[in-house]
């Protein structure tokens, strides 16, 4: 019997002795499940059946079903978005983002960061829709002083899910040249890598087991423009970067070595609500079998 098999069997035996992570209702409360989206760009309905690239794919309603199914199995679910919720279908032109926020609230989103297109209705347009969102917006490298968003968008948050203490912060892209000045107003942009490292260190020192960066910087650029890849390589205390902006369809999260050669993961799920990312975390404690790769079983 090799070591792995032994651990597996030991896990099964301990399960038999009711030292099991599952409660009697079959809900797993030992595992943290992180679900995330980015750049869903007001794609509330699925693509049309005759769409050449994505026929009948996506849709907020189906996304909600998947989330609900996962919530029925796991107690500790964290639902996150990396920005560009707004703009892309007539729903936004007609209703200004109201429906997007209402749906995300119903799905139980915990946190989101701001993308450049979330300013397409101006700061006022975004502020007007905030009452429809019962989740929180995080962005650490924008200074909102002297704007309507002052105090409404926080840099970071610490959240407890079961025994997991998680630090989450948001990082936004430089708005100058990307968003008309009259739309982003007096928001002041600060260096993403510097801010991210400062905050990640602070969150780890406050005892967070996991530090997550919700980023709208973009995955990678040919130039030396700051990106998730650059942030990851130059970071120290971040465990996971959930990105957006470049509409990068990643098959699964990518492992990168950070400044101190430790593992950090980056993930991004493309565009238009076609995909959702999932990353699970488990404690390095006894009796829990560490799973390597597993794929999500679809709801029939």
């Amino acid at each position: 019997m090799n070591r792995r098999e032994f651990i597996k069997k030991a896990g099964l035996i301990s399960a038999g002795l009711s030292v099991t992570p599952f409660t009697s209702w079959g809900i797993d409360n030992e595992r943290l499940v992180i679900l995330h989206t980015n750049d869903w760009h007001s794609h509330i309905d699925p693509f049309s059946a005759n769409h050449k690239k994505y026929p009948s794919m996506g849709g907020a309603s189906r996304r909600a079903s998947i989330i609900q199914e996962i919530r029925s199995k796991y107690k500790n679910v964290l639902l996150l978005d990396s920005g560009d919720i707004f703009q892309g279908t007539p729903y936004f032109n007609q209703y200004g983002g109201e429906l997007e926020f209402k749906l995300m609230s119903e799905m139980g989103y915990d946190f989101a960061t701001l993308g450049n297109h979330d300013f397409d209705g101006g700061i006022e347009g975004l502020d007007k829709q905030l009452p429809h969102a019962n989740f929180r917006f995080l962005c650490a490298n924008y200074d909102f002083k002297n704007t309507l968003l002052d105090g409404k968008v926080k840099p970071y948050n610490i959240v407890k899910k079961g025994k997991f203490k998680i630090g989450i912060f948001g990082i936004g892209i430089e708005l100058d040249g990307l968003v008309p000045k009259n739309l982003y107003g007096d928001i002041v942009y600060h260096d993403p890598i510097k801010k991210a490292n400062q905050l990640a260190k602070k969150l780890k020192s406050e005892g967070c087991h996991l530090v997550i960066c919700l980023s709208h910087l973009g995955y990678e650029y040919k130039s030396d423009k700051v990106s998730d890849i650059l942030l990851a390589k130059n970071s120290k205390y971040i465990d996971l970067i959930l990105g957006g902006h470049t509409h990068t369809f990643m098959k699964s999260p990518q492992k990168i070595k950070n400044q101190t050669h430790e593992n950090i993961f980056i993930n991004q799920t493309g565009w238009a609500g076609l995909n959702m990312g999932r990353i699970d975390y488990e404690y390095d404690s006894f009796g829990i079998v560490k799973l390597q790769n597993y794929s999500y079983k679809k709801i029939s």
């Binding site: 943290l32 699925p46 009948s56 794919m57 996506g58 849709g59 309603s61 189906r62 996304r63 909600a64 079903s65 998947i66 609900q68 997991f164 087991h209 996991l210 465990d239 996971l240 990643m250 098959k251 699964s252 999260p253 492992k255 993961f265 993930n267 799920t269 493309g270 609500g273 076609l274 995909n275 959702m276 990312g277 999932r278 990353i279 699970d280 975390y281 488990e282 404690y283 390095d284 560490k290 799973l291 390597q292 790769n293 597993y294 794929s295 999500y296 679809k298 709801i299 029939s300």
Partner: peptide, 19 residues
């Protein structure tokens, strides 16, 4: 130390039911 379990990103297909 906590361990991540990496899984492929979920494709939101028409086979999923509506909510």
């Amino acid at each position: 130390q906590i361990y991540p379990h990496i899984s492929p990103n979920i494709s939101i297909k028409p086979t999923y039911e509506n909510n």
